[in-house]
């Protein structure tokens, strides 16, 4: 097991290097770079230097005058010492900006994820055990509806019903207008109040797929021979389902959960934009669209690390949960 992990980690480092390089090259190849936009704006001011002069000065300041490979090596050199530079778009250091926005997205994602699990897994089991019943159809329809709804549509619908018509929630934002005057408990509750609709949106959109996945796996397991044996042995139906079948369903589920770790940090771009939540999704989108290389590099490499880590954890958990699997 240990050799396996070490081999995988080394392989991950190599993959990471290439991923980072590809990201950097792509950012450099964007049609209009960040500094071009700035240079153009500044050269349009009366009495200012020409566009070419501004480009030369800004290229040197931002390190874009080197070629792609040299630029990448320079970035890598600094990154390995922990210096990811200042964000061009947000002015402040990249790590600070990232730190200030990512935890909110993480918490939102975590809560949504836990709720999804609590709702989807029991529903999936019920749908599988009572296949072709009313319950099964109702749950499947609900799941399909959830998957099919686009985020922006569903979020707008929720806002229309709960904010405009009923007035139960603020239309957008993380905090209300009186936030500063509240006590610490009040502040916490204010934020929680504002996060209700975004989390509901996230849960409804993604609960469907998890539920169907559970149902499918459960059905497969329920048709297996050993379940028939268990029933033939005269075991209680509940024990058959929850003790034997469910455990086997858990195997692919657990690996899937392990692999969704990066998803918690990537934020939900559309939901955050629509509800004006200052999360990492919206922040990173704006940075990337503007061509902010330091921020994008840090964020995308961070995501790559998490993805590789997630895959590794999935594989390890698979071995842990399923005694039939042995890692060579």
């Amino acid at each position: 097991m240990r050799k396996f992990i070490i081999k995988r980690l080394l392989l991950s480092l190599v993959i990471l290097f290439f991923v980072a390089f590809i990201i950097y090259a792509l950012m450099r190849c964007l049609p209009t770079s960040y500094i071009e936009t700035i240079a153009r704006q500044k050269s349009m001011q009366p009495g200012s230097k020409s566009f070419d002069e501004w480009m030369a000065q800004l290229s040197a300041t931002y390190g874009m005058d080197k070629g792609i490979i040299a630029g990448f090596i320079a970035w890598l050199g600094r990154a390995l010492t922990g210096d990811f530079g200042d964000s061009w778009f947000y002015v402040v250091p990249v790590v600070d900006k990232f730190n200030s926005v990512v935890w909110l997205s993480f918490i939102m994602g975590l809560i949504a994820f836990i709720l999804e699990l609590i709702i989807a897994i029991p529903l999936g089991i019920v749908a599988a055990t009572k296949q072709y019943s009313k319950a099964d159809y109702a749950i499947s329809v609900f799941a399909l509806a959830g998957i099919s709804l686009p985020t922006f549509f569903f979020a707008s619908l929720l806002k229309l019903v709960f904010c405009v018509k009923l007035g139960w929630f603020d239309l957008f934002g993380l905090i209300g207008r009186n936030y500063e005057q509240l006590s610490p408990t009040g502040k916490f509750l204010d934020k929680a109040h504002h996060l209700v609709l975004p989390i509901v949106t996230l849960v409804v959109i993604s609960v469907g797929s998890l539920m169907r996945y559970t149902r499918t796996n459960m059905l497969e397991v329920l048709n297996a021979d050993y379940i028939r044996t268990a029933r033939a042995k005269g075991l209680d139906e509940r024990k058959v389902i929850y003790h034997h079948a469910f455990r086997n369903t858990l195997i692919p589920l657990v690996t899937m959960i392990g692999g969704s770790l990066p998803g918690l940090f990537s934020g939900a771009l559309i939901t955050e934009t629509l509800y004006s939540i200052p999360g990492i999704g919206f922040t990173s989108y704006n940075a990337m669209v503007a061509g902010d290389i330091p921020f994008s590099m840090f964020y995308l490499v961070f995501m790559a690390i998490l993805t590789l880590l997630g895959n590794l954890i999935s594989d390890i958990l698979y071995a842990v949960v399923d005694p039939r699997v042995r890692i060579a």
Binding site: K165, L182, S183
Partner: peptide
Amino acid sequence: SNAQPSGGEQTDGG
């Protein structure tokens, strides 16, 4: 439903 929305949220905290 066209219930008038209340302006601003009064949360716990006084």
